[in-house]
Design a protein around this nucleic acid. Structure first.
Lengths: 340, 340
DNA sequence: CAACGTCGTGGGAGCGATCCCATGCAACCT
DNA sequence: AGGTTGCATGGGATCGCTCCCACGACGTTG
């Protein structure tokens, strides 16, 4: 523990201390069955005694595995941090990777380096696999990485027809649940504050909203649709528009909680009782959903699980490089609070 | 570019293709001056031709440098993500490290692994230096790492008398600026919604508040002090308390923007005009500060800069292992908006 | 013109692990 | 008793790089 250990001990020294050969010591460390109990004990004692830690560089050089995985986050999407949802995903990733004893190398992809520096880095020489979070529609990065023979898993889809392995929340079904719930509450003039039309999440949740209306036999009405950009401000602005256009609306489904919170403000200022006059449902089940006034009914999705599933998928493709990529849609569920 | 490159080329092959020896090729790659123009050109051409990327494991094994830096985030403080401030710090760290061509290894320290796994990882064998974000008061991790001979830099202080290298915002001066500003606006019954008393940030900003009062010749009054936990809710609760206790207050300094936003809500509901009756100043200059009603006057600090300074300090101690650690306090400045 | 730097160069040694092969030994079978 | 199997073992070769030393060619100097 408190030895000055200027230079770390090598496997050779451990073997010597244990009175065995290098090969046997290596076998103990890598958990081979072909070792006598006596030798195993001696080696383990020596390891503890000397405070031995295997040198990962030497191991990588020989095995051609790095035991590291890259998490790439596009700079333009750096809001990724700062959003509780992505924070949760990263946490899930971290947990799952550390259980698998893999290192997490964080790559914040600056526009400058996207050219080639990033691509050069994403090689078997540096990492065994790649996780990608939140890409643009047109990004060819996944294909480029795959072309280099590295397994990739995306968090969220970049397009509706995403190729390869990805993990995404079942956004359409989530939105559908929200609308079903509003219908069950007897609402019939259900407005939506949709996300940006140029983002898959936005489009998919909007589609789920439409599906829900159709299933309930309600007509889709463009005057009940307003788009926001997932920010609180945009939620407020959209709610103003909707109220002006359709003062008779009796429910609002917002594509995320932040916009729903904005809607709540505006409804309150406009003197509409929630949920008396208007029911409001959000999406995400973000921390703030529990502390709005009134607390927000919302569609729950689990960021932590998303991160863990991304890692699970990646481990799969690392183990079976030629198996076909299996996307995974994560279940959502409705959390009913006081706003509906 | 599009070659199938099943196995990456080695330095040996580059040298052969360029018609030079391994040594010369290595010199070109590492920018040695002792190379003829002709040889340099030949090697560079061969590198481009073959798509050569040096094998970092081999390099590390030989040089004993990893060219990687760990960023350790304590799990209990995982809110770190999800907060715009820390998101900015991480971004600054990422930028600075990539400019220095260092890799960022993210370690989310789970309580389980804190025991020894984490300690074992933090060795010269794995990383060249360590960045620590947001520790608990009693954490001995920095000392343990330093004992292993690894440079460490903290972001934020764990105690008032923090040993070693750290970067922190000048919180006391920032709070002082806020109070000075309120005094200049003619306010004299200045309340504060302070942070938790068991956090250095909370204590330091509170101290700055007291300093400001003293400088203005105003008496510190316990009835004008309420503590929150940096959340919006706690800001609202604190504001209720303050109003009940001191209906005559004419200004509030909140230790962060979120609590200030909570205070704004409560003041508005209580019918106090801001800034007519009460001036409000926050701390952080978080994104939300610009979109409160009214927009919030606040103390600006730059998370991005904090991240970059942490890296600068770390690079320093990596270059001069025996130089004394120099902490760095970052300037803050007041951003005056409509709330004061 | 011999002696001596200087400069560019090639290639050996070695970093610390893993893998594999050859070996020794005990146990089991005929 | 002799042969065969099986298991635990030690150590050589190897991964791809950097460092260092030795060497030849050239220019400078006494």
């Amino acid at each position: 523990m408190s030895r000055t250990a200027r230079t770390r001990p090598t496997l050779e020294e451990v073997a010597a201390a244990a009175g065995v050969g290098r090969g046997t010591a290596s076998r103990v460390i890598n958990g081979s069955a072909q070792v006598s109990e006596r030798a195993r004990q001696a080696v383990e004692d020596a390891i503890a005694e000397l405070g031995y830690v295997p040198n990962p560089a030497a191991r990588t050089l020989k095995t051609q595995r790095t035991d590291a995985v890259a998490l790439v986050i596009a700079e333009s999407e750096e809001r990724v941090f700062g959003e509780p949802f992505f924070a949760g995903v990263i946490r899930g990733i971290g947990t799952a990777l550390s259980q698998a004893r893999l290192q997490l190398v964080l790559l914040l992809a600056h526009t400058a380096q996207r050219g080639g520096q990033l691509d050069d880095y994403l090689t078997r020489q540096h990492v065994d696999g790649v996780l990608l979070l939140s890409l643009h529609d047109d990004d060819t990065l996944p294909e480029r990485i795959r072309a280099r023979g590295l397994p990739v898993v995306l968090g969220g889809r970049a397009t509706e027809h995403q190729q390869g392995a990805f993990v995404d929340a079942d956004n359409a079904m989530g939105a559908r649940l929200a609308v079903d719930h509003l219908v069950a509450r007897g609402r019939s003039r259900i407005a939506t504050i949709a996300g940006p039309a140029d983002m898959v999440v936005g489009r998919t949740r909007h589609q789920g909203y439409l599906d829900g209306l159709r299933a309930a036999g309600l007509a889709a009405d463009a005057s009940l649709v307003e788009h926001g950009d997932f920010s609180l401000d945009s939620g407020e602005a959209a709610m103003h528009q909707l109220l002006a256009r359709r003062p008779d609306l009796d429910a609002v489904f917002a594509a995320n909680d932040l916009m729903a919170a904005g809607a709540l403000h505006v409804l309150r200022e406009a003197g509409r009782a929630v949920p008396g006059d208007v029911s409001v449902v959000g999406f995400d089940d973000a921390p703030l959903a529990a502390s709005t006034h009134p607390p927000l009914t919302t569609v729950h999705q689990s960021p932590d699980l998303m991160g863990r599933e991304m890692v699970a998928l990646l481990l799969d493709s690392m183990a079976h490089p030629d198996a076909p990529a299996t996307p995974r849609l994560l279940e959502t569920r409705l959390v009913v609070r006081a706003s509906s």
